[in-house]
Deep mutational scan, measured.
Amino acid sequence: MEVRTIKVFTTVDNINLHTQVVDMSMTYGQQFGPTYLDGADVTKIKPHNSHEGKTFYVLPNDDTLRVEAFEYYHTTDPSFLGRYMSALNHTKKWKYPQVNGLTSIKWADNNCYLATALLTLQQIELKFNPPALQDAYYRARAGEAANFCALILAYCNKTVGELGDVRETMSYLFQHANLDSCKRVLNVVCKTCGQQQTTLKGVEAVMYMGTLSYEQFKKGVQIPCTCGKQATKYLVQQESPFVMMSAPPAQYELKHGTFTCASEYTGNYQCGHYKHITSKETLYCIDGALLTKSSEYKGPITDVFYKENSYTTTIK
Rank of each mutant, 00 (worst) to 15 (best):
M1I: 09
I6Q: 13
K7N: 14
T10L: 12
T11C: 03
V12K: 09
D13E: 15
Q20A: 10
V22I: 06
M24T: 11
M26C: 14
Y28K: 06
Y36G: 04
L37Q: 14
D41N: 09
D41G: 00
I45E: 14
K54L: 13
V58Q: 06
L59V: 10
T64W: 09
T64K: 14
E68S: 07
A69L: 10
F70V: 11
F70H: 09
T75H: 04
F80C: 00
R83C: 05
A87Y: 03
N89T: 09
K93C: 13
K95P: 03
Y96M: 05
P97N: 03
P97R: 06
N100K: 14
L102Y: 10
I105Y: 06
A108C: 12
A108E: 12
N111W: 07
L119E: 01
L121S: 03
I124Q: 05
K127L: 09
N129P: 03
Q134R: 12
Q134A: 09
D135F: 08
D135C: 08
A142N: 13
A145D: 01
A146Q: 08
A146K: 01
F148L: 13
C149F: 04
L151F: 05
I152R: 00
I152H: 03
G161M: 02
D165E: 15
L173P: 03
A177S: 07
V185N: 02
V185F: 01
G194M: 01
Q197W: 05
Q197M: 09
M207R: 06
M207Q: 05
G220P: 05
C225G: 02
V236D: 10
Q251V: 10
L254A: 05
L254P: 05
H256E: 11
H256Y: 14
G257A: 06
F259E: 00
A262S: 04
S263T: 11
Y265D: 07
T266Q: 01
T266P: 00
Q270T: 12
G272L: 00
H273N: 02
Y274T: 01
K275L: 03
I277R: 03
I277L: 03
K280C: 10
K293L: 09
S294Q: 13
K298R: 14
P300A: 09
P300R: 10
P300K: 06
D303P: 03
D303E: 03
T312R: 15
T314L: 15
I315T: 15
K316V: 15
